[in-house]
Computed example of a mutant assay.
Amino acid sequence: MTTHTIQIDGVSQRYHVHGQGPVCLMHSGGPGIAWDYMRMPEVEQHVTAVYIEPVGTPGADQLPKHPHGYTRERYARSIDAVLDDLGEAKAYLLGHSHGGFVAQHYALTRPSRLNGVILYDSSPVTGQELFAEAQRKFDEFMARHKDNPELPEIVKAWQTVPTIDNDETTTQVIRTLLPAYFKDYWASEAEFSKMRAGVRGNYISGSDANLEPEVIDDRAALGLLSVPALVIVGLYDFICGPRWARELHDRIPQSTLVALADSGHFGHIEQPDAFAEAIADFTR
């Protein structure tokens, strides 16, 4: 592993390099979630994984108007700078969850810098449509685990999401809610509990530096996406589930869809071998 720090507009940007093979930049989700949950040892056997540590996340530098200003274009400029620092004219880009929104934007605005884009448990749209579908899938999660004693606290955390406005609450809600992001967290709790205890997040407002909300709906533009795309989804993902993966796949001209039958939102943890194989096939 090597860690690198560069400067963008007076703000430090770190990234971490692991593995070997074709260069693939990794952009984590949230926004505001610490990058290290994204470590993919199995994938690192096939690609040089460059984990971007997004500004505004725990331990990273913050923008002058934090928690505002973290737009997709600002993240895209960080990707440009990392590629330049690596000396890479082109690379693959993987975006997970909110990082998938960033990856879509980057692929649409800077296709000449990509060999391909990997949209991992993401969606072409945010807002009420996304959360209505998430509520439907969350109801399915509740039905599957209706007798679990943790369920009331998880439901309470989900209801708290729209009111989050500080870092401490962000981390508390993520840790409480995390089982909902897995197909069956409790079946492998000994394996997954370390991630749950360590996950950290900072509050990011979703507004630009002028306090205007960043509304995302890429559906009309996806037909113009000109680089090869791999869409990966866990069939039990409640937040960015199969409906959105199918829509991404149907709208992107050169796309491959991989559905992980035994995963929720974290296929690289729940089905690491199948996930790594999909990445290897795409980048090969």
Rank of each mutant, 00 (worst) to 15 (best):
A197V: 09
P54W: 00
S97D: 15
I232Y: 02
P228S: 13
G69T: 04
A278M: 01
E73C: 09
L86P: 00
V199E: 05
T169S: 12
R110A: 15
A280H: 08
E270T: 12
T126M: 15
R219Q: 10
D262T: 08
K90D: 04
E153F: 12
K146E: 14
F282Y: 09
L114S: 11
P22V: 07
I252M: 06
I6H: 04
N210L: 12
V55E: 05
E212Y: 07
D167M: 06
T283A: 02
F141L: 13
G29Y: 02
P162Y: 00
P149R: 07
G241T: 05
L235K: 14
P253R: 04
G223Y: 00
H4A: 14
E140R: 14
V227L: 08
G100H: 01
A34Q: 08
P149A: 09
Y37W: 15
T57F: 05
V55H: 02
L63I: 14
T163K: 09
D184S: 12
P111R: 03
K65A: 11
T169H: 02
A76D: 06
T71N: 11
V47S: 00
S255T: 13
L130E: 03
H4C: 08
I204H: 06
V47Y: 00
V117L: 04
L130N: 01
V199H: 01
L235P: 00
T3L: 10
A60C: 15
S12W: 01
V173I: 15
F275V: 08
Q20E: 07
H268K: 05
R284N: 12
D147Q: 14
S263N: 13
L108G: 04
Y92G: 05
W158C: 04
G241K: 03
D165W: 07
D121Q: 10
V125P: 00
H145V: 06
A49R: 00
H66G: 14
S255L: 07
T126S: 13
V11G: 05
Q254E: 12
H4L: 09
V11P: 00
G206L: 11
D237N: 13
A107M: 10
A276F: 06
G21H: 07
Y92V: 11
A229C: 14
E133P: 01
S97K: 05
I52E: 01
Q20R: 09
A259H: 02
E270R: 10
K183H: 11
L83I: 08
Q62V: 14
D237S: 15
R74N: 09
T176G: 06
Q20F: 03
A76C: 09
D61Y: 02
L260E: 00
V155R: 06
P58W: 01
P228E: 12
Y185G: 02
Q172I: 12
R74Y: 06
S188E: 12
D9Q: 06
R14E: 14
Y75P: 00
P162K: 03
T71S: 13
D250A: 12
